[in-house]
Design a protein around this nucleic acid. Structure first.
Lengths: 138, 138
DNA sequence: TGTATTTAGGTATTTGAATGCGCAAATATA
DNA sequence: TATATTTGCGCATTCAAATACCTAAATACA
């Protein structure tokens, strides 16, 4: 149903790819990763491009090419990746249209702010290196 | 930007309307509420239909018609309304496609489950009657 | 009875994310 | 140098959710 906590597939792909590249001895190409993750090669390619552009990955073209890490997995927090792919998490005013809400305080209290903060705190503390142990031996 | 905590406008409209109808002495029509909330009359009408169908509101057509409460505002939790409009909040498996994730535990840990539970707990405890005091005198 | 008002509900349009596609650029290797 | 491989990147398409529109049905009231 409607996802309350919304994490796009792009974020998910980025995080998984960084971990996979981290543990790979040689460079990993997009097709291989797409196959492993059961994801669209095209979508994944877009995500990888972003990660290259922002210096998380290096890419090499041509046969045997692919992607390698440019930063150590211990230096990359999940939050950095989240923000790169989705932007800063913002709380939208609930009546987005005219801000003339006839209520003096938000009917949601500050639950959204609170949950967002918890999420950010968790993602800031968690690093790519933390998720590497979860990779199944292929 | 991408909303991390996603609450649709439909949920928001439903909650606000129930509070407005609760404090209204006579029946409130869709156009009036739309004006007060600065929202689309059409969208709001859909939301109100749902609330009628599920016995939160009664409706009467024709001149002077509109909506009146069918349940007491102290008997309606925000969660009921959320679930009515959005369905139960589910955690999607992050690689939605093939569930052959090459990771043994979810890279997100259980943060999404935890945040969802917090949200649900908050929304279950909060009632329409709790937000009525926040209505600005018009 | 006629008319204006208002909800009901089906259908259409819009929007944004995801996905697909095609070609250019780079490069390894035969 | 030719060829196969692989990324880079812009554009087109698809898909689902959100939103808008349109007409029918009901009802109050003159």
């Amino acid at each position: 149903m409607g996802q309350l906590i919304h994490l796009s597939e792009a974020v998910s792909l980025a995080i998984h790819c960084l971990a996979l590249v981290s543990v790979s001895e040689k460079s990993l190409n997009a097709s291989t990763m797409a196959r492993h993750l059961g994801a669209s090669r095209n979508h994944l390619a877009k995500v990888l491009q972003q990660l290259v552009k922002h210096n998380f990955l290096s890419s090499t073209r041509g046969p045997g090419g692919g992607f390698t890490m440019r930063k150590a997995p211990g230096e990359i927090t999940l939050y950095e990746i989240y923000e790169l792919m989705e932007g800063k998490p913002e709380i939208e005013y609930c009546m987005a249209h005219g801000n003339e809400c006839p209520f003096s305080g938000c009917v949601y209290g500050n639950i959204r702010e609170k949950l967002t903060e918890e999420f950010v705190a968790f993602f800031r503390q968690r690093k790519i290196s933390d998720i590497i142990p979860a990779i199944k031996p292929s």
